Simulated assay, not measured.
Amino acid sequence: MSPLSITRTLPPDATAAALRADVAEGLSRTPKQLPPKWFYDARGSELFDEITTLPEYYPTRAEREILRATADRIAATGARTLIELGSGSSDKTRHLLRALTGLHSYLPVDVSESALRAAGEALLAEHPGLTVHALVADFQRGLTLPKTPGPRLLAFLGGTIGNLLPQERAAFLDSVHELLDPGDALLLGTDLVKDEATLVAAYDDARGVTAAFNKNVLEVINRELGGDFDPADFEHVARWNAEREWIEMRLRARDDLTVKIPGVDLAVPFAAGEELRTEVSAKFREDGVRSELAAAGLKLTEWWTDSAGRYALSLALRI
């Protein structure tokens, strides 16, 4: 068997069908909204990579600091299989792969086959004894894992769990419980509640990179569905919702306008000042994370933060 194999569990047209469904449903409702996954075409991924280097955007640096400091302690799980959801370029997992000396298999999961192939080939060059079995899949639409040696460590990094609404998080954590066997572990990255100014700045940087990233979803709709959005008609908005403890990214129409989207047979009216929500990014507290994990049959056993206490990695065992 080749050390790199790729299994596609998504039909070839699944991404296009999901985009049509999300745009048709999200832009027909009041208030209007879209899920954040549509930011990440090739251009959106480039912009996000740039965001992670900005001085205002601390989560990536904070998570990297924790991974470097705790990799050996994470390795103490004895994991022989590492599963990573939303793996992308697999950059963050390199710290884990170096520490997990007994690792047999790495299972990256992503919707992009090209990203999985590039990451898998790069990792095999660095770790020639590793077996990489990549899965082209959407982890929110059900996931079946191939047989691999245990114990297994499932990593969900980057604070991506914050993009899920509370009911979606509960369903996701339930699905993690079903994927894992007793004694397997979940490594979870969560951004933490902190002062509003720091949070808003992370999503509204001075150079306007996040604004361009936010507006890129309009370009995706134009390209894929024939829409006639003009990004200049919209203003980037980042707002802290103190009651729900999450950041909301929105696009605010500057004037009354109507957007035509032939690919879903829609004409979408916007009133001046009307907002389209494009992302929720929840922030967490340790007690809340512990409670949400416990509700899904996962026991938090380790809680690590960066030196500034801005971000956390937690380790939870399937019980």
Rank of each mutant, 00 (worst) to 15 (best):
M1C: 05
S2F: 00
P3N: 01
I6M: 00
T7Q: 09
P11F: 05
P12Y: 01
D13V: 10
A14E: 01
T15A: 15
A21I: 02
R29A: 12
T30M: 04
K32H: 10
Q33E: 08
P36W: 09
P36E: 07
K37R: 05
Y40G: 08
A42I: 11
R43S: 08
G44S: 01
E46L: 03
E46I: 07
L47I: 12
T53F: 05
T53Y: 13
E56A: 11
A62T: 02
A62G: 09
R64K: 08
I66F: 08
R68H: 14
D72E: 10
I74S: 08
A75V: 14
T81G: 02
T81I: 08
E84P: 13
S87L: 09
S87E: 06
D91P: 07
D91S: 14
D91G: 00
L96S: 06
R98P: 03
A99T: 13
T101S: 15
L103F: 07
H104K: 08
Y106E: 03
V111T: 13
S112C: 06
S114V: 06
G120I: 05
E121I: 12
L124K: 00
L124S: 10
A125L: 08
A125G: 13
E126D: 09
H127Q: 04
G129I: 03
G129A: 04
L130G: 09
V136F: 04
D138N: 07
F139N: 08
F139Y: 14
L143K: 00
L145A: 05
L145F: 07
P146K: 01
R152L: 12
L153M: 02
F156H: 06
G159L: 03
T160V: 11
I161Y: 04
P166S: 03
Q167L: 11
Q167F: 15
Q167M: 05
A171D: 06
L173E: 10
L173M: 01
D174I: 07
H177Q: 12
H177P: 05
E178T: 14
E178K: 07
L179S: 04
L180R: 10
D184I: 04
A185G: 05
G189H: 12
A197F: 11
L199Y: 02
D204R: 12
V209M: 08
V209Q: 03
T210M: 14
T210F: 07
A211Y: 01
K215G: 06
L218A: 01
E219T: 15
I221S: 01
I221E: 14
N222Y: 04
E224K: 10
G226R: 03
D230W: 08
D230S: 15
P231V: 11
E245M: 02
E245R: 10
E245V: 04
E245L: 03
E245H: 13
E248N: 03
L251W: 11
D255Y: 02
T258N: 15
K260D: 12
K260N: 15
P262R: 02
V268N: 05
A272E: 12
G273V: 12
E274T: 12
E275W: 11
T278V: 06
V280I: 15
S281E: 11
K283W: 05
K283L: 00
F284R: 08
D287A: 13
V289Y: 00
R290G: 11
R290T: 15
S291L: 10
E292A: 13
E292L: 02
L293W: 02
L293T: 01
A295M: 07
L298C: 06
K299G: 10
L300R: 14
A308I: 13
G309V: 02
R310F: 07
S314D: 09
S314W: 04
A316V: 10
I319T: 14
